[in-house]
Write a protein that binds this DNA or RNA. Structure first.
Lengths: 188, 188
DNA sequence: CGTAACTATGTCGGTGTTGACATAGTGGCC
DNA sequence: GGCCACTATGTCAACACCGACATAGTTACG
């Protein structure tokens, strides 16, 4: 099974979902560490069922097709547990923003600054969303059992918050430096 | 032209490269914000030449094929400058490590800790490499002209250092929390 | 004298990913 | 009553990407 399969399985191990619900959670900006369109999800769900990791029940739904409610089987949970503890491959870094900055010396400085301002605004929005999710989390009490699904949700959310904050920090340093502000913020 | 095309063009705008040299720079861990194998690079270079953004001269080289030295044309630089200042698409987040942590509650805690220790070691190595590059940079004096290619190299390197440090910070917090150490490090 | 690593370019097939097209019922708004 | 957004599943073609296969000269080491 490929990575998307484990992403879906992780959702289904928490509770049953229809394909549509899976697609809703996996489309940005909701899925903040894996994304996929529904076209991909349908094929992957079919393969998960074929390999016995996922089962479904059919219900009459709106539209031309029946609604299917998918859930992880015992074998699916076992396979997911095995995969989760195995070492991840080194990620292939792909960062379009850095690639633009890398080539920004050729471009008009004013346009580069405008682009950076847009990125800062976007990341501020994402960070606000994450902080809102975190506040909602902590209203119910911070998760105390590190072996619960709730703690896993919380830990990944903190990773998202940390990386957004770091990205914002760097973006602001870069914008201020390009603007020629003799800002005292050393990048360390 | 796709993103890989602009990544290659960015290299060729700095100085001419052979296809082999491009591939060497784009294979991890050297290319720290875009990677590609040589199979992909050859096809993309051919398309860049076809669209007039890149030109090459042929030299007799070792092996069965002639060596080709590629460089960016004027049109290539113009197109790259235009692209660099245009707003990047929202990145599609894909993080296998976060996906494993998200599902780690199902797995054996000891195995998860071992996996996290491996990740910490790997990121420490990457960070060390980047810090070495940065020290080499600063031995020649920190870049002062923010409109130079050298500054662009430096800025992207600082982004890599910042994100590796943040990732390490989070990984250590997670490991200590899963270990049950009542560590004082609040995640903020 | 062998052999391994490095330079150097190229093809091919399989898989992953995306956007467009297709169908159709329900609920809410104007 | 018309229109739009949402629920809901599915197919298809194009493109991106990766690993394997293919070829072959140079250089360095033992």
């Amino acid at each position: 099974m490929n990575t998307l399969g484990y992403a879906i399985l992780g959702l289904l191990a928490r509770r049953p979902h229809s394909g549509y619900e899976v697609a809703a959670k996996m489309r940005t900006p909701i899925g903040y560490f894996w994304t996929a369109g529904h076209a991909q999800i349908h094929g992957t769900l079919a393969r998960l069922v074929e390999s016995g990791l996922v089962a479904f029940t059919t219900e009459p739904g709106p539209g031309p097709h029946d609604k299917k409610l998918y859930s992880a089987t015992g074998a699916g949970r076992d396979e997911l547990a095995r995969w989760a503890a195995s070492p991840p491959p080194a990620p292939q870094p792909r960062n379009e923003l850095l690639l633009r900055v890398y080539n920004g010396w050729l471009a008009d400085p004013g346009e580069v600054l405008a682009m950076l301002d847009g990125e800062i605004a976007r990341h501020r929005d994402v960070l606000d969303t994450y902080q809102g999710l975190r506040a909602a989390f902590e209203r119910n009490g911070a998760p105390d059992d590190p072996r619960s699904a709730r703690f896993a949700d919380y830990a990944t959310l903190l990773a998202g918050i940390g990386s957004e904050r770091e990205e914002l920090r760097w973006l602001r340093w870069l914008r201020n430096t390009l603007r020629g502000n003799g800002n005292g913020a050393r990048s360390q």
